[in-house]
């Protein structure tokens, strides 16, 4: 269910664009935020309905853009580690292996307590400070094993 807050957000978005349809991407993102990073079938239907689109359209959008997590179970902290070239040259693989061991999951998985999800991603535009990762909305750069430990222990 879209919360009143999310609806207010979406309503605000509609003025930004010439067509209601233009608001569909940010609207879906708001809906996902509201559910701590997960997008439900109901949200997809409701956003479509709110904007005046067939639900197929929201399904298309969430399937195309990688930042939507439709019908997935993303943990409280979504750790995305860049594995593209610049990061890889700077030992990103090693960081990923370390995280896999530390969290006891493979990349692509969520820990049992639903606290962490680990994903390997393509370039995040932070190549000069490789290796790097993104946790929810924040970037963490120039990673080393000890820095990773510190970052994780500082999460709320």
């Amino acid at each position: 269910m879209l919360t009143e807050e999310t609806k207010t957000h979406i309503e605000g978005l509609l003025n930004k664009y010439k067509t209601r349809r233009s608001a569909v991407m940010p609207a879906l993102m708001h809906a996902q935020k509201q559910n701590a990073g997960n997008l439900t079938e109901e949200d997809m239907r409701e956003v479509a309905d709110y904007i005046g689109l067939n639900p197929v359209v929201t399904n298309e959008i969430v399937g195309f853009y990688t930042m939507y997590n439709p019908l997935k179970d993303i943990g409280t902290y979504h750790i995305q580690v860049c594995a593209n070239l610049s990061c890889s040259l700077r030992q990103a693989e090693f960081i990923i292996e370390y995280l896999e061991k530390k969290l006891d999951i493979k990349s692509g998985e969520t820990t049992k307590n639903k606290r962490y999800t680990l994903t390997r991603v393509e370039c995040l535009g932070s190549c000069g400070t490789a290796p790097m990762m993104q946790i929810n909305d924040d970037y963490f750069e120039d990673l080393t094993v000890s820095k990773v430990d510190e970052i994780l222990s500082n999460l709320d």
Binding site: V56, V57, N59, E60, G63, L71
Partner: peptide, 17 residues
Amino acid sequence: MLGPMGRGAHQEETSFL
């Protein structure tokens, strides 16, 4: 009623979910 779901080689033309 139909749309391309997914991207690239994973794209599948089908109905809502």
